[in-house]
């Protein structure tokens, strides 16, 4: 038992170490600065600039989070503050099933419904697109991270003692004022970390985004440009990675960057949430 436990505990270090050992080759031979900030990606010519991928990842996941903030906040407030308990009974399975649907299914749905919608939406701005772009990626991601964030938010709002609302109400505040001035303020650290966790989830999501985002190596300039996020880079090129020197090392570095970003976000968000639990 203890052995398995220790094994699990050191797993994250193993993950990082394994990926690091594999990517050390490229870190040693190319400047880390070039790797991170250059936008020239020509593996055959030993040019590995990760900027297009990192920026695409930021575009997709930040757009998804920005869309998720109002939807999740509004819905969690409705479910915990206004709706009858039967609404939660109805929504809980919806959230759970949505959270359980595999990434690839979201991808198929994206191809079937979101991509055509993206073409139409871009048309409103007189932009021509194939539909495989950041916008589609963000929409698919949005639906994928909603159940995840919503679950945390519902939990957080339920943790706030009812007496706090009662105190505000008995001072003559309406329910909405109580939510706006008291509950949101009380829940603020929890809300921030919920979206932090959502962002890190979005950052690492692979297959569904890859299927709709276009995968063109370029720095996207608007939301209807195609992009090429980091996870997609890794997933798409595993086939060739042993045929070009240092290519495998570059892909492992991509995985390491991904891991680092996600660990940082996760760590910060979870610390914040733990503090919230302690003080509420």
């Amino acid at each position: 038992m203890l052995a398995s436990l220790i094994l699990i505990i050191i797993l994250p270090f193993f993950l990082a170490a394994g990926l690091y050992l594999k990517s050390i080759l490229i870190i040693n031979e190319n400047h880390l600065q070039d790797l991170l900030f250059s936008d020239i990606w020509k593996p055959a010519e030993n040019k590995f600039g990760f900027a297009p991928f990192i920026i695409s990842s930021l575009w997709v996941s930040l757009s998804a989070i920005i869309l998720a903030v109002p939807v999740c906040l509004l819905s969690s407030i409705y479910i915990t503050q206004y709706a009858k308990s039967s609404v939660l009974k109805l929504m809980q399975p919806v959230i759970d099933i949505l959270a359980g649907i595999p990434s690839v299914i979201f991808g198929v749905w994206g191809v079937l419904m979101i991509v055509p919608f993206s073409v139409k939406a871009a048309g409103w701005f007189n932009i021509h697109t194939t539909g495989y772009n950041i916008f589609s990626g963000a929409l698919v991601l949005l639906v994928m991270i909603i159940p995840f964030i919503l679950n945390i938010l519902i939990e957080i709002f339920r943790m706030i003692p009812e007496e706090l609302s009662e105190a505000s109400l008995s001072l003559g505040a309406t329910k909405w004022e109580t939510i706006k001035y008291i509950l949101l303020r009380k829940a603020f650290p929890g809300i921030v970390s919920a979206f932090g966790l959502g962002l890190s989830r979005a950052f690492g999501e692979t297959i569904a985004v890859l299927m709709v985002v276009g995968n063109v190596i370029q720095i996207p300039h608007n939301i209807f440009d195609p992009g090429y996020p980091l996870p997609a880079l890794i997933a798409n090129n595993y086939g060739e990675m042993l045929s070009i020197p240092k290519y495998d090392s570059a892909l492992m570095l991509a995985a390491l960057i991904l891991l680092a970003v996600i660990l940082i976000f996760n760590f910060a968000s979870r610390l914040l949430i733990m503090r919230f639990e302690k003080y509420s």
Binding site: I9, P12, G204, I234
Partner: peptide, 22 residues
Amino acid sequence: VRFILDILWGIPSIVYGAFGFV
């Protein structure tokens, strides 16, 4: 321990895939 497990849960599967490959 719970904290580390939660963090592990949050690591995307593609990273596990890359690690598996290593």
